[in-house]
């Protein structure tokens, strides 16, 4: 079942085109990683999905309802954590958490206290004394204490320390186990790699890649490290080989994914001693898109 969908979403601010036909689809139970450089349009997309901005054209829907028209109905089942969490300086963290969860409707008191414990938050402190990370914790506790079907998280871990990131990842995995869906915009690519079933890469308002990590890797290249008994020669001229470099006793070879079979056949002739395949990381994928 499709939980969240945008079709040819366009948003213009005056002459500036922030989003240029963005298509996203998050299915039930899926964790969708939404990545891209600063200013690419991630937050704009999310804000349209939440009915905070109105799309110039195209459609955005959640639970099959229109993001703009049915905002309130949608929000009853959505928990949102903004990228920049600004809170009221004279309310305490505990008060803000209670306010947020009660505005959303369904919430669980025991879950709330459990989460406060897990994140190590002092709810009796005024928000003005919180660091960026602590303000994010307030928003995260409020989000995960709500009984939502979809979590929209905009760079939720940018201020968290590595221990808290682990806690956050556990919360995401718990949500997934309960069949909830997540739209996670993030800069921390290792985190996206670890958590997400699907990834969309946005750049200058356009989605340039989307699919499962496996599919994305397949579209690009594979890096292998190989040591052979005989001296490797003539590899560069093979079809599908993108680069060869000497490393330690052997060679690093970059191969286009579809040619991997052919290249292997040629390599075998040199009597392979050691062969390691290192899948391309999301970071490399990301860098490649933003350099080229």
């Amino acid at each position: 079942m499709v939980i969240l969908k945008t079709e040819d979403l366009v948003k213009k601010f005056g002459n500036f085109t922030a989003l240029d036909k963005v298509n996203l689809e998050v299915k039930s139970g899926e964790i969708y990683g939404f990545i891209g450089p600063n200013g690419a349009g991630k937050t704009t997309t999310i804000r349209i999905l939440l009915g905070i901005l109105k799309a110039t054209s195209g459609k955005a829907s959640i639970f099959g309802m229109d993001s703009w028209k049915d905002a309130v109905e949608i929000h009853k089942r959505v928990a949102y954590v903004p990228g920049e969490v600004n809170l009221w300086s004279n309310l305490t963290g505990g008060e803000v958490i209670d306010l947020f969860t009660s505005l959303r409707g369904k919430n669980s008191k025991t879950r709330r206290d459990e989460l406060i414990e897990m994140f190590g938050l002092d709810p009796s402190k005024k928000c003005r004394t919180y660091s960026k990370g602590n303000r994010q914790k307030v928003a995260l506790v409020a989000a995960f204490a709500s009984d939502a079907d979809l979590y929209i998280l905009d760079e939720p871990t940018s201020g968290l320390d590595p221990l808290m990131e682990k806690v956050f990842q556990k919360c995401i995995m718990d949500a997934k186990r309960e069949g909830k869906s997540v739209l996670l915009s993030s800069h921390i690519l290792s985190e996206v790699e670890k958590l997400c079933d699907k990834v969309g890469i946005i750049r200058q308002g356009k989605i340039i890649e989307s699919g499962s990590l496996k599919e994305l890797r397949h579209l690009t290249r594979t890096d292998i490290y190989v040591e052979t008994r005989q001296e490797l020669t003539g590899l560069e001229s093979l079809d599908g080989v993108l680069g060869v470099s000497k490393k330690d006793e052997g060679y690093l070879v970059q191969i286009e994914s579809e040619s991997i079979g052919n290249v292997m056949e040629s390599l075998a002739k040199f009597e392979i001693v050691l062969l390691e395949s290192t899948p391309i990381t999301l970071e490399e994928l990301f860098m490649r898109h933003n350099e080229g």
């Binding site: 804000r47 939440l50 905002a71 309130v72 949102y80 903004p82 505005l103 959303r104």
Partner: peptide, 8 residues
Amino acid sequence: EHVLASAV
């Protein structure tokens, strides 16, 4: 945003 992204 906090308020309007909830059921208000």
